[in-house]
Amino acid sequence: MMEAETQTPLLRISALTKRFGGFTALDNVSVDIPPGERFGLIGPNGSGKTTLINCISGAFRTEPGTVTFRDEDITRLQPHMRTRRGIARSFQIPRPFRSMTVAENLMVGLDFAADTSVIVSEAQRREAMMSILTRMGLASKANVSANQLSQVELRKMELARAMATHPKLLISDEAMAGLSSSEVDEVLDLLMSLADQDITIIMIEHIMQAVMRFSDRVMCLEAGKIIAIGTPDEVMANQRVQEAYLGT
């Protein structure tokens, strides 16, 4: 922890507030995420987790508050610019490109946000696409329409498509919701293996065992406020966290 805090953070969120009309979904949230961290984000339903992700990825404009990524203020950048700088995300409810095959879904990322210092030719793009699909266990589905995927395959494709943009920060929004326990392990192993490759990961999850196993650090939101942040054990032992979870 000590070393992590002296490093410059990969992502810095400072004093972020997000209101929908009169309703405050995020209230003065500040947090630093150092490079390489596996960061767990928890909180009861409606506590603002997805809203925070939307602010980081640029889907929502924030006012006030700033988002800094690799020492650059990205608060005003459009989502695609943030993606190109290395922030990728999955969606809580999968949002595949339905008229495309799995391979084409990934090609969108590779066409628009691939690492152009490594990937130049069409052949290299295809190769990168196949290697991501293979890692995600989707190679056999490459030419299947995204419409025909099962739930777990859709979740994996969300992650695969995010990976195609060669992220430095990958945000996974409940990639395991609704999956069987063996499927949860499968996706968790995938995320673990990505984290081993110098990709910083923010994982939102309701499944506590998964959060505990995965995270270096956990943050708990309730009603738009941070109520606890620390090691998984510390956060689970926290009185307010327990109340927040029992209370809902």
């Binding site: 993606t83 490109f97 339905r98 008229s99 495309m100 090609m107 969108v108 990322g109 628009f112």
Partner: peptide, 25 residues
């Protein structure tokens, strides 16, 4: 071309396209 792929992506889902790097506007 890449343009067609980008247009198809934004036709399917504009936010997902943006978050995959497509400059939709």
């Amino acid at each position: 071309s890449w343009m067609g792929r980008g247009l198809q992506a934004l036709k399917d889902d504009e936010l997902a396209a943006e978050c995959t790097g497509v400059p939709t506007l």
